[in-house]
Amino acid sequence: MIAIVVCAVLAVYAGLRVVTERNTMKKLPFVNVISFGVAGVIALLLPHPLTILAAAAYFVGSTLESNAIASTWAGGMRRDD
């Protein structure tokens, strides 16, 4: 009961920090905080054994998305053609 509320409030606080941050690169750690919090909310929401798999799938997807944004912003894997 108290754990899921802590996860949700932490996610909202990190969301507010993402919106009020000016630098683009400094937004990405707070996106990671949102990912942790929402994965905790998904895992604690239902008493079902498949929720931990759903939380793991969301965490993998969110991490992949953040890494793709950061890699493109830094100009990674540039092919000189």
Binding site: A11, G15, V18, V19, T24, K27, L28, V31, I34, S35, V38, V41, I42, L45, L46, H48, L50, T51, L53, A54, Y58, S62, E65, S66, I69
Partner: peptide, 21 residues
């Protein structure tokens, strides 16, 4: 795109709450 990621994070608990895991 980063703000869109924040919005998508809010959608997933509603999907999991209905039981559509």
């Amino acid at each position: 795109l980063i703000s869109l990621s924040v919005m998508i994070a809010g959608v997933f608990p509603f999907i999991a709450d209905r039981g559509y895991l």
